[in-house]
Every structure is written in structure tokens, then in C-alpha cells.
Design a protein around this nucleic acid. Structure first.
Lengths: 228, 228
DNA sequence: CCGAGCCTTGACGCCTCCTTGACGGACGCC
DNA sequence: GGCGTCCGTCAAGGAGGCGTCAAGGCTCGG
């Protein structure tokens, strides 16, 4: 299902958007300010963001920059400002589209469909593997299920998130900073103790011999790597 | 250079667009009708299409469909029609953006930049040469993996950094000062002993005969050079 | 209101990596 | 032929990174 993050501080507009989006089978998260928006974006990985520029706590363009620091998720800007400069600034900061209020719901939804569509992976080539199997354990990212030696293993949300990033980059080194920012959010980049704790938990739950990991490999000073 | 295909039948608008685009170093093709547009698109493979819906010979939406049959090139629609239905139809047919006339040139150009930007290759799609192979060893800079004779070789962060600088300048001489400053920082320029130690380690880990290096070559008094 | 997970945070021991010094060989200059 | 310079090699020390454990606080559901 497509996940939409709505960032808007006017409750009526939020309500209208949420109702319309849910009716069309989108999964919707909503944030009323910039801080919550950035947090939710990091936690939920939306497929598209609808962003009002007039937020109470931060300039909307800063939100765009904050998102663009780590993700290419499509951003559709909503704004009451008609000025050309505002549009240019938002678009050049990394927005994908700019819709002025008042807006027609049909048009917004069409623009949203267009944004989601073009972000889709190319047919055929974009099929990503969601089930990963190693000699010791099995992970199904889509079903959020993991098992070792036939027995189901329970993972916490953070553990899943971390595992997901590693598995999506199977064989490639993922830097500590990238892991931290993708799992904990853009403002985290140095708290490597989080990584140490959660890597240990993943290993304890999935590796046959947690103290001699064969799949979750540490590259000292650089990051971690998942190997089948 | 970015190539733009302008599809528009009003000569003044064509002229304004062409002048503005060329001034910004875009390469511009122009078509006055749908047939020419489809032909030019096929022949020239533009990076983005600016498409007026009001063409003399064919409905603009048909042009969108015609293009979408074989390409995902970004399409920005220009139209005098403000109706919501028109926008929805064009966007759902495959357009990326919809700008109503009269339009501001700044805004159009910003939307064009946005369209081009997001069409840019994703990391991994825009093949930069990151895998280097010699007769004796193999280096993957993106995955941070190196192997010799089929066996993985572990390199430390500093070793990677040094290797990266050398590989990026394959065949070219890199001065000691440049290496020191790129790897150890701007304030290091004379500590050539660091280089000696780390070049030795790279050779020991990657060269078949470390004492007679064939790929990491010393240019006495000047610097080092990496050769495939 | 209580309890169960879950996330955060701190402490500690081990291990890796970077730095640094010493030594020997090759080469060129005097 | 002696000397100085530059480079390669080796080993030891210290600093910082990493794995591990456990306690505290938070949120959510009962």
C-alpha cells in the first residue's frame, strides 16, 4: 500500500486530506509541525510527502532540505503563497511539485498519483527481493517475519528497521552514519552506541554463534555489512 | 548537456522558451505539432519534454500516451485550460507536471529543473566506474570490498581512503603532498612516513609480489601512481 | 494503576587501528 | 668510496572503537 505523510497545521485541511486519501486506500500519517514531520518521515518511510510550507516551528523549505539530506521521496508542496520566488525556492530546494491553496482535491490527488508513479521502479528491473535466506536463518521483509532453525524469531521495530537497511544493501558496506540516519533519523549521526547495542541484539537473535558473526559483519571504523 | 524538447504551436511562446532555455545552456529542439514532436522525441531522446496541450493536429493527451508507450522522459504540460478535469486527465495519462498559461518563466524553469533532477540516475543506476580489476586483485569502491585470488581482503579505513584516491587517478601520478592532504587532512603535507607505511600495507594486501609492486608504483621524490 | 516490552544510557574489558621510532637498503652526489 | 637522502620494513605503544551487560525510563495495553 502507498504510504502518504501529510504535513499541515490547519486541522480542516488535514481532515479533508486524510479522509480523501484513506478513501482511496492510501495509508496516511499526519504531522502538524516540522519536527514531527521529520521524525515521522524517518520512522515510517512514506512513499510521498504532502508538505504545507506554513508550519509553526520551522520554515517549510528547511523541511525539504532536511528530507533531501537522506531521501529522494517525492515531496508535493502546498502553499498559500502564489509568488514565483517562493515556488522557485521550494522546487530548487528539492520539492517535486508545488500546489497553491486553495487547491482542488482532484488535482492534488492526480499530482500525487503522478509523483508516486514516476518514483516507481522501472517495470521488471525494480523487483526487489523481500525474502532473504542464509544457512542459519530466514527473513521476510514484506511479511515482517524472521525465523531461525524453523522457529519464529521476534524482532522489535528498531531491529526490523536496522535489519531492513542492511538487507537492502546485501554485500555492500553501510556506513555507521547512514545506518543511524536511516533508522533513527537525520539528526542522529554519531550515536554509535545505539548501533552497537542493536547489532548485538540482531546477532543474538539471528546468528548461530553471536560472538562469531558470519552474516552481520563489522568493518571497524567504517560500518557494517550484511552477507548471505 | 540537458536536452529539452519544446512542443508548442504559438511562435511567440516557442521563441521565449527557446531563448530562455538556451541562455541557461540547455540544448533545445522545438516542434510545432504532435507528429513532429513524436518524431523528434524518438530521434533525439530529450531529457525532458515541455508540451502544450493545444496542438493543431492531435489532442495533447494523445501525445503523452504516445510518449509513455516507450519512454519515461519527464513531461511538463503547458495549457491554457484551468479546468481540474483537464489536469487530472493529463497527469493520469502520464504527465509529470501541469503548468497553466500564462506562466511565469522562472517558475517553469524551476519545475523543469525539478523534473530533470528527479529523473537523474539513482545511486546504482548512474553507473560510475566503481569496480576496478587488475590481473591480481579486484576492488569495489562502492561496496568497500576487495579481493585477491578469490579471497576477500580486509582493508582499514585509512587504507581504503588512500586506495580510493589512487584509483580515482588511475594511471596518473599523485604527489605525496596531495595524498597526505586528501587522506590525513589539509594540515598534513610532510609526514611521508605515513605514506610509506600505508603503501606497504596496500601492497602487502593486494600485490602478488609486494616487494616488486606492479600496480602501486613509486615515483621517487614525487609521489605514487596506480596502474591497472 | 500496574506490568511488559522497548528504547536509551552508562560502564567496562577487549581488540583493532593509527602513530611513531628504529633500522637497512638503494641511489645519487660529492 | 663515503655520505646523505629517500624509501621499504618491522614492531611496539597508545588511543579509540567495539561487544557486552545491566539498569533506568518511557509508552502502551490491560
Amino acid at each position: 500500500m502507498t504510504r502518504v505523510l501529510v504535513v499541515e497545521d490547519e486541522p480542516q485541511i488535514v481532515r479533508a486530506l486524510v479522509i480523501n486519501l484513506k478513501a482511496r486506500r492510501y495509508e496516511v500519517d499526519a504531522a502538524g509541525d516540522a519536527a514531527t514531520a521529520l521524525e515521522l518521515a524517518a520512522a515510517r518511510h512514506p512513499d510521498v510527502v504532502v508538505l504545507d510550507l506554513g508550519l509553526p516551528d520551522m520554515d517549510g523549505v528547511e523541511v525539504i532540505r532536511g528530507l533531501r539530506g537522506w531521501t529522494r521521496v517525492p515531496i508535493i508542496v502546498l502553499s498559500a503563497r502564489h509568488s514565483s520566488d517562493e515556488k522557485v525556492e521550494a522546487l530548487d530546494a528539492g520539492a517535486d511539485d508545488y500546489v497553491t491553496k486553495p487547491f482542488g482535491m482532484d488535482e492534488l490527488l492526480a499530482r500525487l498519483r503522478a509523483a508516486v508513479r514516476r518514483a516507481e521502479p522501472v517495470a521488471g528491473g525494480g523487483e526487489e527481493e523481500v525474502v532473504v535466506e542464509t544457512d542459519g536463518f530466514l527473513v521476510d521483509l514484506a511479511a515482517k517475519k524472521a525465523s531461525r532453525a524453523g522457529r519464529d524469531v521476534r524482532l522489535t521495530p528498531t531491529e526490523w528497521h536496522l535489519l531492513e537497511v542492511l538487507v537492502r544493501n546485501t554485500g555492500k558496506l553501510v556506513s555507521q552514519k547512514q545506518l543511524l540516519q536511516e533508522v533513527w533519523g537525520p539528526s542522529y549521526g554519531t550515536e554509535t552506541n545505539y548501533l552497537r547495542v542493536y547489532m548485538a541484539q540482531l546477532r543474538r537473535k539471528l546468528e548461530a554463534d553471536p560472538s562469531h558473526p558470519r552474516h552481520f559483519i563489522t568493518e571497524p571504523g567504517m560500518g557494517y555489512r550484511f552477507e548471505k
